[in-house]
């Protein structure tokens, strides 16, 4: 069920974002190169605004389209640059002995893709778009026992195999660039939660019990984490871990978060407005 939920959240998010980006790109080409557009949403909006005599709105619309496209490009470039820099830094804090030891222990599961860095804070994450890697810290290895360690590696391996860093990046990127379509934020958060629950589930299935991923999670949460604040947004994702705990406590029960009607109403309101304009333009 979470598989379906994850897939539909991702596909819906990509579909909405893809359509909006494509429409925006066409509209930008119309603005700069004078392309002739017939059924472009933004073009129709613009024409409607001009025919109503609200020219300032038409300029605002152009500004929104152009700044959104620019921020999309800037965000992608910035992220690629950050990855390069982070990989460089991680390589420098590599704990070669621990990395070699882990490669011997878990090489069959992880291959060459596990890096241990020396840091007292307990860290476990998967990163990278093409060159994907699992990063564990020496602090984490000290904190966990053997089975818990394996559970965390299985959990991260699930993220790695399914290209989760790239997909999470895409959904979160679109949610922040298209801040005026709130349903994208909801989809991104849902997708993120679904990926975590699926990764927990994978570790439990492989180990035949929820006990180990559960106690690893418990230890990490009780250890107070690293104090870093990597996520800029605050939303239900902040409490996502509670859904994960409920799922571990009761694997068969559905623990899905409620549908945020106001968000949906906001987004569909916008959609209705656009449809109305389209209708008006065609008639």
């Amino acid at each position: 069920m979470w598989n379906n939920r994850s897939r539909s959240a991702f596909v819906t998010s990509m579909l909405i974002s893809g359509i909006v980006v494509a429409q925006m790109l066409l509209y930008a080409c119309h603005l700069f190169f004078g392309w002739n557009l017939k059924t472009n949403l933004f073009h129709l909006c613009n024409m409607w605004m001009r025919s109503m005599g609200i020219f300032s709105f038409a300029y605002v619309l152009d500004a929104i389209v152009l700044t959104t496209l620019a921020s999309l490009v800037v965000n992608i470039l910035r992220q690629l640059w950050l990855i390069r820099r982070a990989e460089h830094k991680l390589e420098r804090s590599r704990d070669s002995r621990a990395t070699a030891l882990m490669a011997m222990k878990y090489g069959q599961i992880t291959g060459e893709r596990l890096l241990v860095i020396s840091s007292a804070a307990p860290l476990a994450f998967t990163m990278g778009f093409i060159n994907r890697r699992i990063i564990l810290s020496t602090g984490l290895l000290e904190l966990l026992d053997k089975e818990e360690e394996r559970a965390v590696i299985l959990h991260e391996m699930h993220h790695l195999r399914h290209h989760d860093p790239l997909k999470t990046f895409m959904t979160t990127l679109f949610a922040s660039v298209f801040w005026y379509i709130p349903v994208l934020r909801w989809l991104a958060d849902n997708y993120h939660l679904a990926r975590e629950i699926l990764a927990d589930g994978y570790a439990s299935r492989e180990q035949g019990s929820e006990a180990f991923i559960g106690s690893a999670l418990l230890k990490l949460l009780r250890s107070g984490q690293s104090g870093a604040q990597p996520f800029a947004h605050v939303s239900f994702a902040e409490h996502a871990v509670n859904y994960r705990i409920r799922k571990i406590l009761n694997p068969v029960q559905d623990v899905s978060p409620e549908l945020p009607w106001t968000t949906l109403a906001g987004s569909s309101g916008m959609l209705l407005l656009l449809m109305g304009m389209l209708f008006w333009a065609v008639v």
């Binding site: 910035r78 992220q79 950050l82 990855i83 820099r85 982070a86 830094k89 991680l90 804090s93 840091s119 007292a120 804070a121 860290l123 476990a124 994450f125 998967t126 990163m127 990278g128 778009f129 810290s137 965390v152 959990h155 991260e156 993220h159 989760d164 860093p165 999470t168 990046f169 979160t172 990127l173 990926r195 975590e196 690893a216 999670l217 990490l220 949460l221 984490q225 690293s226 104090g227 870093a228 604040q229 990597p230 996520f231 800029a232 605050v234 994702a237 902040e238 409490h239 996502a240 871990v241 509670n242 705990i245």
Partner: peptide, 23 residues
């Protein structure tokens, strides 16, 4: 580690537990 994580940027990593997670 905080700096390291800040520098990764907010989006590229899938953490075992997010720092903002409040259980």
């Amino acid at each position: 580690t905080g700096e390291l994580l800040d520098e990764f940027g907010p989006l590229i990593v899938n953490h075992m537990v997010d720092a903002l997670d409040e259980a």
